[in-house]
Design a protein around this nucleic acid. Structure first.
Lengths: 178, 178
DNA sequence: ATAAGGTGTTCCGTATTCGGAACAGGATAG
DNA sequence: CTATCCTGTTCCGAATACGGAACACCTTAT
């Protein structure tokens, strides 16, 4: 269980709850039409359970979304609260380092703050659309579509979507390990 | 719940076995790198089990595919030839350009040749694991884990996985349009 | 004030998934 | 032929996901 990627259960749970409330369904109603216990759905949505494939399919149907959107590491995925959307596309674990690939979308004006990662961590950002800024240490870089920056991530840093259009980028984080 | 053998569990199990064998991995090896019991994997692949989210994520990682591809009801462009795997993760269409994000995996020694893209097209490659080379025009760049290159893609180019371990990379292609 | 109907949560007994051990078969070597 | 090392399968005790009942809370009606 202690698997680091097991924010998975919590992530999927949050997404299900988001989809359900967005459709104005009650937990009770969704559980009924999905044919699962409402206790199961409650604990599923709050991330206290590690659902089985069957259970996930049971809720995907009534919600009207393909499974791929529920687990959501594919194409368009979750819109987090404040216009910030982060999707982890890929994780590679090696003896010497861990490499993670994220797709980040920032609504106009949205700011995503990130604490310092492990010592020696490096981030590379390739902007897909729009523009924005990246701040780290005292530095501050302006980014536009197609730009590519590289910066140390072992210090607090932040991304800001430009007021007109925000931006979307691929973020690759390489973290060395002991 | 119906017979797991004929349901979603069976489909996902078959897909996992197909992906595993396509990569030349043994069941034992995949179970080990995924950190799950081999009995679990065996029964999973033969559709006798109804796997949990954690278990699915555990195998998706080593197989090098996003979860969405495992459960497989999302849209995925995926070409699989001899040791070459290309997955389109994201496409952004704007008035001025089209941006595509691919995840590329090359088996040891495999070569992926790409014809010239539209005039003005640019590619950016961030290597996740392993190493290899990129050739374009007369140029030739050596790449290792974590490296990031940028090169014009409006001419034929090719990637080669190093003989020991091949490589995996994120490829971002920006194509301008009239 | 009390009841009725809704929300989502916590709890419990049962069923099943989990990792690991023991197992059966195939290939290769000595 | 036997030993060794693979392959993948079946089995088992322990952990846990399952459905459903009981629960707490809020809103509205009588």
């Amino acid at each position: 269980m202690g698997d680091p990627r097991t924010g998975a259960a919590a992530r999927v749970g949050q997404r299900i709850r988001a989809l359900r409330t967005a459709r104005g369904m009650s937990l009770t109603a969704l559980a009924a039409t999905a044919g699962i216990g409402k206790g199961s759905l409650s604990e599923l949505e709050t991330g206290r359970r590690n659902p089985t494939l069957d259970t996930l399919y049971s809720v995907a149907g009534p919600l009207g979304v393909p499974m791929a959107e529920l687990v959501g590491d594919g194409e368009w995925t979750r819109l987090d609260e404040n216009g910030i959307s982060t999707t982890r596309v890929r994780v590679v674990r090696e003896e010497s380092r861990v490499t993670e690939v994220y797709l980040i979308r920032l609504a106009p004006g949205a700011v995503r703050r990130s604490p310092a990662h492990a010592a020696g961590a490096v981030e590379r950002l390739v902007v897909l659309t729009g523009s924005g800024t990246v701040a780290y240490g005292g530095q501050r870089s302006e980014l536009a579509g197609g730009d590519c920056v590289e910066f140390p991530a072992d210090q607090p840093h932040s991304y800001t979507g430009s007021p007109d259009g925000g931006f979307e980028a691929v973020d690759v984080i390489v973290t060395p390990r002991a």
